[in-house]
Design a protein around this nucleic acid. Structure first.
Lengths: 227, 227
DNA sequence: ATTTTAAAGTGTAAAAACAACACTTTAAAA
DNA sequence: TTTTAAAGTGTTGTTTTTACACTTTAAAAT
């Protein structure tokens, strides 16, 4: 395609993606963060990011970048916001789109994570991050909470089969507040798209707990939780 | 700032903004759209857009672009989503951030709008738009509805002083559903940040209607309407 | 002057959703 | 055999939401 005058009087910028990768363990949300052993900002903490390449959509770049770190494709991901302040990256002008991803924390590729010098950090322990990555985390958490209140995305943080106790702990972590066990279970019982598998979990307690799964065929877009 | 190797192995792209400009008139939402008398896509309908310039934030570009068309700064604006498919603009690669803006439709600069060959089009009459602008409108409407359900942004579509009948018609237009007058007025009465000005509107009915205004000092972030 | 008209304004009751609350069951471990 | 720790289970009061219809006002028409 020949360059056109009405485009080329305008500047071009690097376009990047930064990924807020959420996991869930021990009743708490965690983020997968890089302790950067590369430039720029070597030695500081940051989100996993990367540049959008020729012929690659911004969404695809976000998936690629998460897969480079975790080995996981097919994650639940969602664009959060785009950050475009001219000095947000002090090195060069970079416009960055933030995406959040939800990972079953049992499944990621440990070698890749080690090779990137990345670590799971529980949310309250997240250190100061480079550039505007702290704002990205704040905005991603807010947006993820909203989405979790509106559709069952949170389930992507759990294994395919989970107990109601795990599910409740997950929602308590997402919304940061305790919930009543009976009311919670009543609510879940009314969601026919969360169904018993018939299996039992015997690892978490003396008494075996019924396992449940999300059935996407039965899910029709109905809202889940009030925030 | 000297170019750095770790940036310059990556491509750069044009970064644009496209603006979904909402107005409200005759009980219906409208969009301010361009019938393009310039390239590219001359003769087709599009959103108002423009490129992000050197040293300009993406947010500032969106405000500039809306001000170029309407003469209005200080509008309520919010970023919606960024569109980054490689072929979304068939001319050259352009990554575009969409923003919505809320305009009091009595106030815009008519000369500027005429000069841009722009027109207010009621939502149900919006014609097919170029590129992915149709998707931008759909996403902006969804996001604006969400924000209007959560905070009183809709008020930016009305004059500073408004009657409860106008306000109800506005929310009916935003959410696309009729509301009960008494229940609506009860709800508004419980929002102390929507207060009587003492003034009366005599233009809309035989019986004068009390005028109200939004008092931002009394607004503390509480949620407004269930969607 | 009187009547008509069109929008402004106002309360109650039933239904639904939500929140609070404590004990029994199970099976492994001691 | 007893202890323990988590799984599992219903009811009631409170709050929120919804449904519903007539009176008031003042301009315009007669």
């Amino acid at each position: 395609m020949a360059p056109k005058a009405y485009y080329n009087i305008h500047p071009k910028f690097h376009v990047a993606v930064d990924c807020i990768i959420f996991g869930f363990e021990d009743g708490e949300l965690s983020l997968l963060l890089l302790k950067r052993n590369f430039e720029p900002a070597r030695g500081q903490w940051s989100l996993m990011g990367g540049f959008v390449e020729e012929g690659e959509s911004v969404d695809a770049a976000a998936r690629r970048v998460v897969a480079e770190l975790t080995g996981l494709s097919d994650l639940y991901m969602s664009q959060v916001h785009t950050y475009g302040a001219p000095e947000r990256d002090p090195g060069e002008r970079v416009v960055s789109a933030a995406y959040y991803a939800l990972v079953d924390i049992k499944k990621y590729n440990r070698e890749l994570v080690r090779a990137h010098n990345a670590f799971w950090v529980k949310l309250p322990d997240v250190p100061p991050l480079i550039f505007d990555h702290g704002a990205m985390v704040r905005d991603a958490l807010r947006f993820m909470r909203y989405q979790a209140s509106v559709k069952p995305v949170g389930i992507n943080l759990l294994p395919e089969e989970f107990t109601l106790t795990q599910l409740q702990a997950l929602y308590e972590a997402i919304f940061g507040q305790a919930m009543d066990k009976r009311n919670f279970r009543k609510r879940i019982a009314s969601m026919d798209y969360i169904e018993k598998t018939g299996g039992l979990d015997r690892t978490m307690s003396r008494r075996a707990a019924a396992l449940y799964r999300f059935n996407p065929d039965k899910y029709d877009g109905q809202s889940i939780f009030k925030i």
